[in-house]
């Protein structure tokens, strides 16, 4: 009797999670895709628009704002990669010096505890042309200083990227630090005895050893960028004009401002495809990694 009981219970306990997965994730994704082919506008309408099946997608690919969003996505991914680079450099230095490691890590990481909305508000305030850093620099004597990035189409995304790097650098530092500490102490000692120069040691030993950490960081970063919404809203409100839109911003805008569910759904589906395109390498990599580990264990 007891055995039957314990056979049932774990399966019963999994039901809520399975229902949620089936409804809120799998079902909802299907639902979103479905809506994108219907005549839904402000309210759901479940008739599929057979006459013009790809209507929303055609519209999407001709929408300059979508193009801006995609361009910004790529630009932001490349720009925010600075956070990984800085994170790694800082992790190496913090790990090497040891002095004040805890304090430095605490300081570098605190922005992560701040919401994107608050972060965006603070950075927007610092970018304020009249009262912010620009004014400060001019008073210091840099007459031509220009820190009014958010007001110009060409520089607005740079402003957002600075805030994102500030926000995320500590996260990558923490991951990199964990990676560095996972390297066997004796390898550092062996290199010391061999008289390997730090440059050679890092480029030929440490960085290749951490390649999985780097890839994880890169994928987490790109997934984070795809979802970027709050900070853009808080810093630029998508502007000037629509120059700082992102895919996530586009979807919310299509749904909440334009009130077009079908259109928003088609863009959301594209977001999902982008996510999977980034995600797929990670899955393959994890598989490959576990296989290699199994091989090592043999």
């Amino acid at each position: 009797m007891a055995i039957r009981y314990s056979w049932m219970s774990p399966r019963l306990a999994l039901i809520p999670a399975m229902v949620i997965t089936a409804v809120a994730f799998v079902g909802a994704i299907g639902w979103t895709i479905y809506i994108s082919f219907t005549k839904s506008r402000r309210f759901p309408n479940y008739d599929i628009y057979w006459e013009n099946f790809w209507r929303q997608y055609k519209r999407l690919f001709n929408d300059p704002n979508w193009e801006t969003s995609i361009n910004n996505l790529i630009f932001m991914t490349i720009g925010s990669a600075l956070a990984i680079l800085f994170g790694f450099i800082l992790a190496v230095l913090v790990n090497k010096e040891k002095t004040g490691e805890g304090v430095f890590r605490t300081i570098y990481l605190y922005p992560l505890a701040v919401s994107f909305i608050v972060a965006g508000i603070v950075w927007r305030w610092m970018f304020n042309p009249v009262l912010g850093i620009e004014n400060f620099l001019i008073e210091l004597g840099f007459e031509n200083a220009s820190f009014n990035w958010l007001a110009h189409k060409d520089t607005a995304m740079w402003g957002v990227i600075i805030a994102i790097v500030w926000h995320g650098m500590g996260f990558y530092l923490a991951l990199m630090l964990a990676g560095l500490k996972s390297i066997n102490d004796e390898i550092w000692n062996a290199a010391k005895l061999d008289g390997i120069s730090p440059w050679k040691f890092y480029t030929e030993i440490v960085i290749p050893m951490l390649k999985f950490t780097f890839l994880t960081c890169a994928i987490l970063l790109s997934l984070g960028v795809v979802k970027t919404y709050d900070i853009v809203l808080a810093m630029t409100g998508g502007g000037p004009g629509t120059s700082s839109w992102t895919p996530a911003y586009f979807v919310v805008n299509a749904y909440a401002t334009r009130g077009n569910m079908g259109y928003a759904s088609s863009a959301a589906f594209m977001m999902l495809l982008i996510t999977f395109a980034i995600f797929l390498p990670l899955v393959l990599l994890t598989r490959w990694q576990t296989k290699r580990k199994e091989k090592e264990a043999v």
């Binding site: 004796e186 390898i187 062996a190 390997i196 050893m209």
Partner: peptide
């Protein structure tokens, strides 16, 4: 002096040959 470590501490990213040469190249 030269040292042999408990965990061997070989450079995992280098081949056996690379391991032998790395210190000499330095």
């Amino acid at each position: 002096l030269a040292m042999v470590f408990q965990s061997y501490a070989l450079y995992p990213t280098k081949t056996v040959e690379g391991n032998l040469k790395f210190g000499l190249a330095a």
